[in-house]
Design a binder for these strands. Structure first.
Lengths: 130, 130
DNA sequence: CCCTTTGTTCTATTAGTTATAGAACAAACC
DNA sequence: GGTTTGTTCTATAACTAATAGAACAAAGGG
């Protein structure tokens, strides 16, 4: 997995790390059982403090996407997906979609962009081919 | 327009104000030419500082959604919508959608949620009925 | 059993953000 | 002329982001 952090950007570093790992999971690049690098290693790779990586991992743990163990390190946990989107997620989606519509972009175009993004996730995912 | 700010919430107040105005525009509740309350008035309504409202209005001005004039106050500007989603918007959408997919929610369900949200915007909008 | 690896916890510091506060300025309108 | 409105300035307190260093705790390997 290739992470790319922008140290000078507006988005906090720990958030960038968290977001990119989430996207890697969505892409199927990281699956249930995949190991993430130790915090100190990842921090050294980017030349950042390991506390910053720690914060990203802790966020992912709170979201239930990874499990943290001493010695075993950070491991991706399978997503059940038996519930739909949370109210909190839907609220964030509403704001984001509203932003596009308020700019005058037709709803169809916005939905098409979402569809394309979602399709791009499935691309790398393992499909059961007979 | 009814705004609702949560002073104790995790989301900054100026962001809440900005988001709700964006949603009101998307809903068609605020159209081209609609006036927003003066910063001091809105601030007094919520019992917050007018600088905080100022920051929200300034954000909206930077995004091109409102125009600010002395004495005329804040006025909603028409959205051209001749361009599609910006790269920045698409990146945020990718992260948000990835979050749902990583949780194991089927892409179809996610897309359906988006469709429902987008439909809810069109509901209040003025359609040209012959 | 010792030692290394790994996450966990603690204190501390610097820089930036959020929100408040007060004051003053500048233009537009009645 | 005075009121209304956005604009700009300084200041402050509380919180967040990132860095730094140190130490602890458990799990596993040689």
């Amino acid at each position: 997995m290739i992470l790319n952090v922008d140290l000078a950007g507006a988005v906090p570093i720990y958030q960038q790390i968290r977001d990119q790992i989430v996207e890697a999971i969505a892409h199927g690049e990281l699956v249930d059982g995949s190991s993430l690098p130790p915090t100190r290693t990842l921090a050294a790779d980017f030349g950042i403090n390991f506390h910053t990586v720690n914060k990203a991992y802790d966020l992912l743990r709170q979201e239930g996407l990874i499990r943290l163990n001493r010695k075993t390190g950070a491991v991706v946990t399978a997503a059940a997906g038996d519930q739909g989107p949370t109210a909190e997620w839907t609220a964030r989606a509403r704001t984001l979609l509203a932003e596009a519509v308020a700019r005058g972009i037709p709803a169809d175009d916005v939905l098409q962009t979402c569809r394309t993004l979602l399709d791009s996730f499935g691309a790398t995912q393992q499909e059961d081919m007979p």
